[in-house]
């Protein structure tokens, strides 16, 4: 191997990783900014760094200080939780039907699930708003918490179906045959083999649902009326100046999410490794 080749190999071996790290840095830059400015002892608005008195822990000690911020956070978490539960349940049933059965209308079903994902959020939001305002208001449904939940379930549903479907399709059909061969009737074959094997897909789908719901702004903005979620709170307070407590909460959610995922992976890998 010539030196030239060696250099080329080194570059081709490492350049990808270097670029990847650079991209990750890019992804993290605004998060780091958010973190840094949660310590800013700002005067009017949290835009420029005030060297006087910074860094300060004031905002961290009083995260619920600004009116409504923690209510908005609670709403976001509750909406995310409910939407995730319902969407995961309904989506899993849909995925099973679409992957496992041949029936009339399967193609239409697949399209019905796919189209919401190919529809821009703003169109979803606008259409839901017209429905809620012009259709559902007759039944006494006001824009607010429940309309947000209904809307979030709808747009999370397709993502759940896609995620669970992928997992189901990659499942070896012979495993279920093996179960049947080993005296499992269809009931125990489902609960002892199919379900545990699809479960990681369902958990992924649930996590995805929650992240999408928690971070959604566009649809929420259309259907929320006077109710505020955390992203909406930040957007609305943008003109007045976003309080540093939003940075505190945003960064904490990031840390909590990372911690939970790491914890999940550690537990997962411990369960997978041999007991000994």
């Amino acid at each position: 191997m010539t030196t030239g080749q060696r250099i080329r190999f080194w570059i081709s071996d490492h350049i990808v990783m270097l670029v990847a790290l650079f991209v990750l840095l890019y992804l993290f830059l605004p998060v780091a900014y958010t973190f840094a400015f949660s310590f800013n002892n700002y005067k009017k608005s949290n835009i420029s760094w005030n060297p006087e008195g910074s860094p300060t822990l004031d905002h961290w000690q009083n995260p619920c200080g600004p009116a409504g911020i923690c209510d908005a956070l609670t709403t976001s978490i509750t909406v995310g939780g409910i939407a995730t539960l319902v969407a995961t349940f309904l989506g899993t049933l849909l995925a099973f039907a679409l992957v496992r059965y041949r029936f009339k209308g399967r193609g239409v079903g697949n399209i019905l699930v796919f189209i919401p994902m190919a529809t821009p959020e703003i169109v979803l939001g606008a259409s839901l708003l017209t429905l809620f305002v012009q259709g559902f208001s007759q039944f006494g449904l006001k824009l607010g918490f429940w309309t947000i939940v209904l809307a979030h379930i709808m747009f999370c549903l397709s993502f759940v179906v896609v995620t669970v479907k992928a997992r189901l399709q990659s499942l070896d059909p012979r495993l279920e045959e093996a179960a049947a061969d080993l005296y499992a009737d269809s009931f125990s074959s489902f609960w002892k083999v199919t379900f545990p094997l699809v479960l990681p897909g369902i958990v992924s789908a649930a996590l995805l649902s929650f992240s999408l719901s928690f971070d959604d702004f566009i649809i929420t903005n259309f259907v929320s009326g006077d109710t505020s979620t955390f992203p909406k709170y930040v957007y609305v307070s943008y003109l007045r100046g976003i309080p540093a407590q939003a940075n505190v909460i945003g960064f904490s959610m990031f840390v909590i999410a990372v911690a939970l995922v790491v914890l999940g992976q550690v537990i997962g890998s411990r369960r997978r490794s041999p007991v000994k």
Binding site: D172, E177, D181
Partner: peptide
Amino acid sequence: SRPYERPVNTVFQSYALFPH
């Protein structure tokens, strides 16, 4: 009769062991 009703067991071509 169904597979689970038969006194017959199979060693599958690709083993089909339950990974979980």
